[in-house]
């Protein structure tokens, strides 16, 4: 029920370029982010095949695990596709940062939308015992040989959050692109209007079905 505020309010200047960018204007600054997901959504993105060339013409990819080397999320991003749920402190930090620096944030795929598969660890939270602890103990102690120990390297290995959260429970999200993964056609149908400064119409089974 925490409906995202309109991006226009969140980020007035960048927003206007996102929705009016196109011919004659500076290229749309696109980012893609990979949080707790399997990278399948990004793979599907790469399945866009020749549309990727069109895209390369129309946008500037400013941050992406598959198409850019930048390590720091840049300022003034127009559109960001976020794959994956928010499962650890690094995911959380990046989510908060990208929200501040991005006009239009898209929950990209079922994991970002509902926590989906990574969220299954939430099934193992009991009162007084969060799911992070349960899965860590299971993985690193119970199933390990006698030398097993819980990983602990602050600043190097990100700590798990007690629960895995969908993106919109952490930051306001502007558009939802479901699918596990969303098919290349669906991704294309969602992105193409953005290039023309329009909001895609997310309706019907072709655009909406989960899974």
């Amino acid at each position: 029920m925490t409906e995202a505020p309109l991006p226009a309010q969140a980020h007035p200047q960048a927003q206007s370029s996102a929705l009016t960018g196109g011919q004659g204007r500076p290229r749309l600054r696109l980012a893609t982010v990979w949080l707790a997901g399997c990278s399948g959504c990004h793979m599907s993105f790469l399945d866009l095949d020749e549309f990727l060339f069109e895209l390369a013409e129309a946008v500037e990819i400013v941050y992406s695990p598959v198409a850019s080397d930048t390590k720091i999320y840049p300022e003034q991003v127009d559109v960001c596709l976020v794959e994956g749920a928010v499962a650890n402190v690094d995911n959380l930090e990046l989510a908060l940062t990208l929200r501040q620096r991005t006009a239009l944030v898209i929950s990209f795929g079922d994991c970002a939308i509902s926590a989906n598969v990574p969220g299954l660890r939430n099934l193992f939270s009991a009162p007084g015992r969060d799911s992070a602890r349960t899965v860590l103990e299971r993985g690193y102690l119970e199933l390990a040989d006698a030398s097993g120990q819980l990983p602990h390297a602050p600043g190097v290995v990100p700590e798990l959050l007690p629960r895995v959260l969908p993106l919109h429970e952490v930051i306001p999200v502007d558009l939802y692109l479901p699918g596990c993964p969303p098919s290349a056609e669906r991704i294309r149908a969602a992105i193409a209007p953005l290039l023309l400064g329009q909001r895609p119409l997310m309706e019907g089974a072709a655009m909406l079905r989960f899974g």
């Binding site: 939430n122 969908p166 997310m202 019907g204 089974a205 079905r209």
Partner: peptide, 19 residues
Amino acid sequence: LQDVAVAVGMDHSRFPYQY
């Protein structure tokens, strides 16, 4: 259930999943 989600335009749940 998927079908009705599509029919009513449910692209995400505003209510937290209960697990």
